[in-house]
Design a protein around this nucleic acid. Structure first.
Length: 279
DNA sequence: CACCATGTTCCTTG
DNA sequence: CCAAGGAACATGGT
């Protein structure tokens, strides 16, 4: 479950557990996910290095480390659609879809990904061209307006473009448009300044609330006391779902106006909206 | 069996 | 050049 809020919650979980840890060995079980770096280069860069901190850029996690020779290196992680990352004591059997394993001086870091759309590599180039973080000073209503203009693309489709604003995905694009009361099918260039400002604000609000939910939800990082962590656990999903106003609620009543939520398809992705609120 | 899925990239078709 | 559509990736859930 990886859009910006989920990745941020994961970052806050991972950082204190990885900070100061030394990587003893790197095990790649699904070579696909370490492209384009490749297993050999990944092992060479990571083995013996210490984790300094975990940052986030859009939906990417940045694992900043210091190698034994004192260089700073950054490994980039992306969860794709189904990725999970967590730290555990390193005793249990490996999950079926383990993609990458980092054996640490204390415990181990696991990256599981059934669909293998996620990545764990050393290529910082994937961050180029990414739009501003939603809370950076660079991201203003004017910036959003400039990135919605000059195209006839629907505003919802524009929000999925990571160069517009980093981290918004299919769920929160629908949620933000509903929050702002804007029809997802409207061409982005057609929004007036007031609507654009409203949408800008709604994006922040919706993402902020989702992060709060993630932190407050019963994600149970301790997993019953042994340090196991299953991001996207049933408890986490249910708690998060309560806050979704339209996503995956086709045919149900709009929580604001009572109208019926509808599902449409834009750019081959589902969009959920309320015709009453988003006219 | 059919269809759907939180992401991204690439290719084809207007 | 632009936008839309589809496929691909690989697997699981309903």
């Amino acid at each position: 479950m990886p859009e910006l809020p989920e990745v941020e919650v994961l970052r806050r979980y991972l950082e204190p557990r990885l900070q100061g840890r030394r990587i003893v060995e790197v095990e790649v079980r699904r070579p696909r996910v370490v492209r384009p770096t490749g297993e050999a280069a990944l092992r060479e860069a990571l083995v013996g290095a210490c984790l300094r901190r975990v940052d986030r850029r859009g939906k990417h996690l940045l694992f900043v480390l210091r190698t034994s020779s004192g260089c700073e290196r950054t490994a980039v992680g992306h969860l794709g659609m189904t990725g999970r990352m967590y730290v555990d004591p390193g005793k249990g059997a490996l999950p079926r879809h383990t993609a990458v394993l980092l054996h640490l001086d204390q415990g181990r870091f696991l990256f599981e990904d059934p669909r293998q759309f996620g990545r764990f590599h050393l290529e910082p180039g994937v961050l180029e061209g990414m739009g501003p973080e939603p809370w950076s000073q660079d991201w203003t209503p004017d910036h959003l307006r400039s990135r919605l203009s000059g195209t006839r693309q629907a505003v919802k489709t524009r929000l999925l473009d990571q160069s517009v604003v980093a981290g918004v995905g299919n769920i929160y694009a629908s949620e933000a448009l509903h929050h702002a009361g804007i029809d997802p099918a409207r061409p982005g260039s057609q929004l007036d300044p007031a609507e654009t400002a409203r949408l800008w604000h709604s994006i922040r609000t919706v993402l902020e609330r989702a992060i709060e939910d993630g932190l407050g939800a019963n994600l149970d990082f301790a997993g019953g006391g042994d340090g196991l962590f299953y991001f996207g656990s049933a408890a986490g999903r249910e708690a998060g779902a309560e806050r979704l106003q339209v996503y995956d609620r086709a045919g149900k009543a709009c929580l604001r106006c009572g109208g019926t939520i509808e599902r449409t398809v834009q750019a081959a992705r589902s969009t959920f909206s309320c015709p009453g609120c988003q006219g």
